[in-house]
Amino acid sequence: MPAPGPTLSKAAPPRRSVPPPAAPAAPGAAFARNLRHNLTAHGFLIGAVVCFALFSWYPMVREVFLAFQKTESGQTDWVGLDNFATVLNDPAFWQAWRNTLLFTVLALVLGFAVPFAAAIVINEFRHGQGYLRLLVYLPVMLPPVASVLLFKYLYDPGYGLLNELFGVLHLPEQQWLQDPDLSMLSVVVASTWMNMGGATLIYLAALQGIPGELYEAAELDGAGLLRKIWHVTIPQTRLILSLMLLMQVIATMQVFVEPFLLTGGAGPEGSTTTVVYLIYQYAFNFNDYGAAAALGLLLLVLLSGFSAVYVRLSRAQDE
């Protein structure tokens, strides 16, 4: 027999080569890579920042400088607090603030309560809520000029629909926009109709988030509609109501479009002159941009306080 040959050992698996350690990334390489991956998003973000910088931040900064400057014959000089003294010594300044506060109070009575009541009514319907939401939001989609022209027709003392209705009811006709005692109320009614749609939808969303068990428990306790609203609806929507109240105060303090288009701005005996309209007069009627900027800065400081409260409440809601 032939001698047995040498036995072959089991072949060992090939060794895998270990790659050398990667060289450290150059400074800024990670940033450049992320920038390339998010180039589209950064492009949209940069566009928004540029728009805000040009049309929001720059005008505010420029207003601060203008409030302490005066330009005459093409020459600009620093005048300190002279523009503020000019504004404060103007009799129209205090009248404008009184009118603005009156508009704010009336707008809170109507523009704050009416959308909330409308949301409660819509929430009670089990069918057709979509059509009702569309109906209540339609005035917001109309151009402000079209809405104002509609109300000018309604308020017309000769052939206006309101006076026609008063005649049918044997009531005395009214000079809605010509009477100093009625002009501001007429402006508030028009403004409420034009802007209540958004607030109504926000209130409706808040109402639909209230658990139905709370209303069932209130009904078992014998609570009627008003008691359910007072003890269930309002406490459950208290934070939303507070936020909307502050937002409405901030918005109504800047009212301009409605009185400007309905009564020409000043109104009979200055009854609808608001702070923003007075700023418009200083800038474009009197060519006193320094006084306009000073008054705008005063309004900005006041509204910044309300905005700070709004931000604080918003954070509380998020928490």
Rank of each mutant, 00 (worst) to 15 (best):
E319N: 07
P259H: 10
S186K: 07
G160Y: 02
R36N: 02
F116W: 08
R98E: 13
L154T: 09
V109N: 08
M194C: 11
N287P: 02
D179T: 01
Q248N: 13
V232A: 11
L295S: 02
Y277Q: 06
N123L: 06
T100P: 10
Q178F: 03
A316Q: 15
E124N: 10
G128V: 12
L108M: 15
R126T: 15
Q248Y: 04
V257Y: 09
Q129A: 11
V148W: 12
E269V: 10
W230S: 08
L300E: 03
T76L: 00
R312N: 14
T104R: 00
L138P: 08
A218Y: 05
L110F: 15
F112D: 04
W57L: 15
V257G: 06
E258G: 06
A119P: 08
A292G: 04
D318Q: 14
R15L: 15
A283H: 01
Q317M: 13
D179S: 15
A29Q: 14
Y131T: 13
W94R: 12
V140G: 07
M253D: 05
W97V: 12
G290D: 00
F151E: 02
L169T: 00
F68Q: 01
T86F: 03
S17Q: 12
R36M: 07
R238Y: 05
V140D: 14
A316W: 10
Q281F: 00
T71N: 14
L108S: 07
A251W: 12
A113C: 14
F55G: 04
G212A: 14
G264H: 06
Y289K: 10
E319W: 11
G128Y: 02
A85D: 10
I240H: 11
R33N: 07
M247R: 02
T263M: 06
P2C: 02
P20D: 14
S147H: 05
L297E: 03
T40S: 14
A92C: 03
D90F: 00
R227Y: 04
V145E: 13
E173M: 08
Y58L: 13
L303M: 13
Q254F: 12
